[in-house]
Design a protein around this nucleic acid. Structure first.
Lengths: 212, 212
DNA sequence: ATGTTAAAAGGGGTTTTTCCTGTTAGTACT
DNA sequence: AGTACTAACAGGAAAAACCCCTTTTAACAT
């Protein structure tokens, strides 16, 4: 019986090589190619006559990262099975990759048995979602619309908070009464679930709302 | 000849297991224990009569991360050899870990040969720095003097400020009087030229002193 | 027309932060 | 022993931040 061909796209050579060893410990699978970024994968898919059965794709990579790669694959090689292997469970990335047609999304902290399960599922059932990814998807559906939608004024306010200014100064710069600013503060505390100005600043930074 | 005992501390089981396989491919080494966070490692070091020859320590981990772990080891187990295995080359982290006595710092994108070299170097020569880490260190020396040199306690303090905590809470967590914390605050305001807690948080983030 | 909602503003209070000016204890250098 | 420096701690007071509750205004939807 022929072995399933797997290619690994990951710039962390240590990981890539270790993973290869692990996979080759499973019967029926062989790693036919290892690449360290999306550009290489696309070149390979373009010229290779017999496509791999599965692509293990990392997200964070130099030259061409997982997102760009997935985007390209979704257009030019929609039949290629991709299992995303990511470091973190960043919601936006999970959503993005699955929308672009990834057959599965697993985190690198998965244990080897589950990993094998994921590979088998993708190849035989066409998909695999880890529990955590499913949870993220569920959460995404549940909140959906009510994502903290901040107004322009609120964003300006956040920016000024991050600039080490007092509320009085902020009021001056925004041509509003300090009392109104206090309202903004209270509102955002509730909306963003924070307890102090520092919480506001941290939220703004984490969500890329301000230029650091 | 007896094999060198290595323990792996990394929450990414897939990586940890793969790495174990790789290491056991080398002669003279054996992975005696795998753990997924610093807390487990410290418990293990505390009760184990024969310490490992080398600890491979990840930085980003749940429960107790690499930095905290290294801090603890530097105080309680200063003779344990630690080789940090990190995802990214964040300068602040590299500096921090080496200051705390890590014998080496390598990135996970190292290739297996270099990895073996690193392990051997740490065990036989007492240290190993990858080229990239050396470059970071060099850069650090060149700017060096004019950078605000913050003490360990000050860094902990900054970290807690960024966690949306009041000074009273910080005092509790650091086992210090609120008045002492107030001293830290005043000191850092002057040193870092900021006017409020938000300024401290922003400085910490801009300079990679805290994990966001 | 009228209820609904959101932004702006204010009154008045508590808590936290910020800013002084000290004291004490330990360490380090000479 | 004397000097210098630092970390830890304190009292007291002003400023800022935080919290609740109410009012005005304007836009808007039914």
């Amino acid at each position: 019986m022929k072995k399933h061909k797997i290619v690994i796209v990951d710039d962390h050579l240590l990981f890539s090589n270790s993973l290869k060893k692990l996979i080759e410990g499973f019967a029926d699978y062989e790693v036919t190619k290892q690449m360290s970024n999306g550009r290489e994968l696309i070149a390979y898919l373009g010229k290779e006559s017999s496509p791999p059965d599965l692509v293990l794709l990392d997200v964070k990579m130099p030259v061409m990262d997982g997102k760009e790669t997935m985007e390209y694959i979704s257009i030019h090689f929609p039949n290629v099975n991709v299992l995303v292997l990511s470091m973190d469970d960043d919601e936006a990335t999970i959503i993005y990759m699955l929308r672009k047609g990834a057959k599965g999304y697993i985190l690198k902290d998965i244990d080897p048995e589950k990993f094998k399960e994921a590979v088998e599922n993708v190849l035989h059932r066409g998909f695999y979602h880890s529990e955590r990814v499913s949870a993220v998807l569920l959460g995404e559906i549940n909140k959906g619309a009510n994502e903290a939608q901040l107004s322009d004024r609120e964003l300006v306010f956040l920016d000024l908070v991050c600039s080490d200014k007092t509320y009085k100064e902020i009021a001056g710069e925004m041509y509003l009464s300090p009392k109104t600013i206090d309202g903004y503060r209270a509102n955002l505390f509730k909306k963003l679930n924070v307890k102090s100005r520092v919480g506001l600043a941290m939220y703004a930074i984490k969500n890329g709302l301000v230029n650091i």
